[in-house]
């Protein structure tokens, strides 16, 4: 049995999302393994970001369900949770294709916002913070330490007090991942994290993702267009085309799947009839 079937962290079943007459995601089912890096790939408009938006509560799926299983066995139905509960209770974090940092706040503050819930609870909805109670001070100190730990991991310690909006592009990308990690997620969803990075930054990102999986044991679900990245770091590949699931397996399987080659990589005209016959069109 494969790792993601054995111990699934997230299971999407018959996920369908319609916008008026357009079916962006059509009856898609897949699982994300608890210890895997899972890549969600497909040509432009295949419905990858829509799947992400369903998982993180931005859209409510028209049909289907998304289950997230906690380490203690508790199961959250993500399509029924409010968006902040998806992060705070089900522990799913995400980044977007475009950078969405809190630009006017400092780098450190961005990571502190991500630990908002722990601190709000510790401060008794701010009353404790005003009175300067010990419990809140300790919680605040722990939060700063955790934030500094992640700044270290993404090499941004030196820039902790700069406004996030003034960092170079590559640093902002890594800060977004650090912010997502500061919410202490079980599942980290990254929408094209390598977009716009140069080769060196892209390598550093791969290292970071690898260490998150290995060292922190956090599952990663990522959308990525750069096939070299996908093939290098992922354990499991889910391929969408026109909103449908066309392949689900290891990188090697995806690479050799004729439907994936036809849909995603494109095939020369002369081979098209052959591929179509194999695919069954």
């Amino acid at each position: 049995m494969r790792s993601w079937e054995e111990d699934p962290l997230l299971r999407a079943e018959h996920l369908t999302m319609r916008f008026g007459g357009l079916t962006a995601v059509d009856d898609v089912s897949f699982a994300v393994g608890r210890h895997d890096i899972t890549a969600l790939i497909g040509p432009n408009g295949a419905g990858k970001t829509t799947v992400f938006n369903c998982i993180t509560g931005f859209y409510k799926p028209t049909e289907g369900m998304i289950e997230l299983r906690q380490p203690d066995g508790q199961i959250f139905r993500l399509e029924q949770l409010d968006d902040h509960d998806i992060n705070a209770r089900a522990r799913v974090a995400r980044t977007f294709q475009n950078i969405r940092l809190f630009q006017g706040m400092t780098v450190l503050e961005n990571l502190m916002v991500a630990q908002h819930n722990v601190l709000m609870r510790a401060s008794g909805l701010t009353v404790g913070a005003i009175l300067g109670l010990g419990g809140f001070r300790q919680a605040e100190k722990d939060a700063v330490d955790f934030a500094r730990y992640w700044l270290d991991r993404v090499n941004l310690t030196a820039r902790a007090d700069e406004p996030a909006g003034e960092l170079p592009y590559g640093d902002q990308r890594r800060l977004e991942i650090a912010r997502a990690m500061c919410t202490r997620p079980l599942l980290l969803c990254l929408d094209e994290p390598a977009a716009g990075l140069n080769a060196r930054e892209s390598d550093a990102l791969n290292e970071l993702l690898y260490s998150i999986r290995k060292q922190d044991d956090i599952a990663i679900l990522l959308i990525e267009h750069d096939m070299s990245v996908v093939m290098r770091i992922s354990d499991h590949v889910v391929v969408l085309d026109y909103g449908r699931l066309i392949a689900d397996g290891t990188t090697a399987e995806a690479r050799n799947d004729p439907r994936v080659i036809a849909a995603y990589l494109g095939v020369p005209d002369e081979e098209l009839p052959v591929v179509e016959r194999e695919v069954g069109l």
Partner: peptide, 24 residues
């Protein structure tokens, strides 16, 4: 200085992202 103030400023800048960072 407080978590509430930070989350207020975060909501000012990007409400959706604040929610996805766990801010109610």
């Amino acid at each position: 200085r407080t978590a509430l103030g930070r989350s207020q400023r975060a909501c000012e800048q990007d409400r959706l992202m604040a929610a996805l960072s766990g801010v109610n």
